[in-house]
Amino acid sequence: MTENIKTVKVRPQPKSETGKHIIIVRVQHNFGVLTRITSLFAGRGYNIESLTVGKTHEPNVARITIVVEGNERVVEQIIKQLRKLIETLRVRDITTVPHIERELALIKVHAGEEKARDEIMRLVNIFRAKVVDVSVDTYTIEITGDSEKLEAFINLLKPFGLKDIARTGVLALTRESAKEGLQEHKVE
């Protein structure tokens, strides 16, 4: 038995695919709870793509939507670490269940010449966006949609010259029709 020790043997590892995950965290809305979550991500070296937080219909409960990019093993660990926080009520990864995903962006774009103003207005209409502020040489546009739609819109505006962008980060709710299919990351 001791002879074979010179041949290298490696533990087989299950496959773990990398991708974007949307994680919903419900927490007790206590002082400092958001810091606990962000410092957990920072301390363990997890990257947050976006994070939004807001009140819910229940008193003292806040809902946090986190988008992370990572392989399944890392995301599983993130979820477990989030669950471990004392103030966490529930954690769900809704990536694989049907859900509605929305983000809002305010985009300030150069629009000095008439040609540019026309072209931008056409894009605004196609994307069902809205011009919410106008100055001599800028438009400020409000748009909602999923992240892909926003990215596409912003890319199309780039040639005109972007002045500033404010984005809310992703919000998500599961589709009621898909409720039974809710997939929780279970340890066992």
Partner: peptide, 20 residues
């Protein structure tokens, strides 16, 4: 990668985050 390379592993722990 080379820890107990041929072993199946049973892990009993109170902390779910310790597992895997």
């Amino acid at each position: 990668d080379e820890f107990a390379p041929e072993a199946k592993i049973i892990h009993i722990d109170i902390d779910p985050a310790s597992i895997s």
